[in-house]
């Protein structure tokens, strides 16, 4: 009897088979991307698309790197780092006030931010475009950074306030009795305690900004301020028939994420699902 409880059900064969099928569905396109990016141009046209390259080469990567890939990568990194940095600072300050200030204004602000979660970015792109043009920021990296910050605030505030609520108020009270100012409490209590939430929010927003496509498409034009996702799209036009190079660019564009996945899978997963799962 006891051993039966321990072993549980018999192995789930249909489940395993279905899972393996979905695994193939997931992995085959990725295998195709990698394999094709390693093929010489002529081989792409001649060989079976899913066959391992006969003349494995990194030439396609060379052609991408010659085409200003580093610049686009740098632009993406700059926009991501600045946006996420600013979002983290201002959202954490806002969340601290929302959790610790019992005034009506703080409550109202919280409601306002929660409302913002339901605003689809796409739907506001026309007025955002209008404002960016009027501000003289069109076709600059700042044009991408400013709206990216604004649209990252609601979810960041939601996650951070939920997290800060769990800090026992006895800790604040103890510090208050010790004579700490609100600023000291922020620096010595809130900041260190909310590190995991800050990590998760940072990763989540970094992914959103890094992969963002619509803002760059609408708010920038010249190649000097092009960011990675947009460059993939333009490579597709420029390289037209050079599919190995297009797919090499696709691979290169997700190198930072892959690195993050290998180094800190747990944090990356936590960041991705931040605020949506328990």
């Amino acid at each position: 009897m006891k051993s039966q409880i321990k072993t549980g059900y018999a192995p789930n064969v249909p489940g395993g088979l279905a899972a393996t099928f979905w695994l193939l569905v997931t992995v085959v396109p990725i295998y195709y991307i990698v394999v094709t990016s390693l093929k010489p141009r002529q081989e792409y046209f001649g060989s079976n698309p899913l066959a391992w390259p006969q003349n494995l080469t990194f030439e396609a990567y060379g052609r991408v790197l010659e085409n200003d890939f580093a610049l686009y990568f740098f632009n993406s990194a700059l926009v991501t780092v600045v946006s996420v940095g600013v979002v983290l600072i201002i959202s954490l300050l806002a969340s601290y006030v929302i959790v610790r200030n019992r005034g009506a204004f703080a409550k109202f602000s919280h409601r306002l931010f929660l409302l913002g979660i339901a605003i689809p970015i796409q739907a506001t792109i026309i007025p955002v475009y209008y404002m960016i043009v009027k501000m003289g920021l069109y076709d600059s990296l700042l044009a991408l950074i400013l709206p990216s910050i604004a649209f990252a605030i609601p979810i960041s505030v939601l996650i951070l306030t939920n997290f800060l609520r769990d800090v026992p108020s006895s800790l604040y009270e103890a510090m208050t009795l010790d004579g700490a100012s609100h600023w000291q409490m922020f620096r010595l209590l809130v900041l260190p305690l909310s590190k995991p939430a800050i990590m998760a929010v940072g990763i989540y927003n970094a992914l959103q900004v890094w992969n963002g496509f619509l803002f760059p498409l609408v708010l920038t034009q010249s190649s000097e301020v092009r960011v990675l996702p947009l460059s993939l799209w333009t490579y597709q036009g420029e390289f037209a028939v050079d599919i190995p190079a297009v797919l090499a660019a696709v691979v290169l564009s997700c190198v930072p994420l892959l690195a993050a996945y290998i180094v800190g899978r747990r944090q990356l997963v936590a960041g991705l699902t931040a605020g949506f799962s328990k």
């Binding site: 300050l93 006030v97 610790r100 204004f105 602000s109 505030v157």
Partner: peptide, 10 residues
């Protein structure tokens, strides 16, 4: 609690 001015940037 902390000043509501800290909400201003966000």
């Amino acid at each position: 609690g902390p000043s509501t001015w800290l909400l201003a940037p966000a």
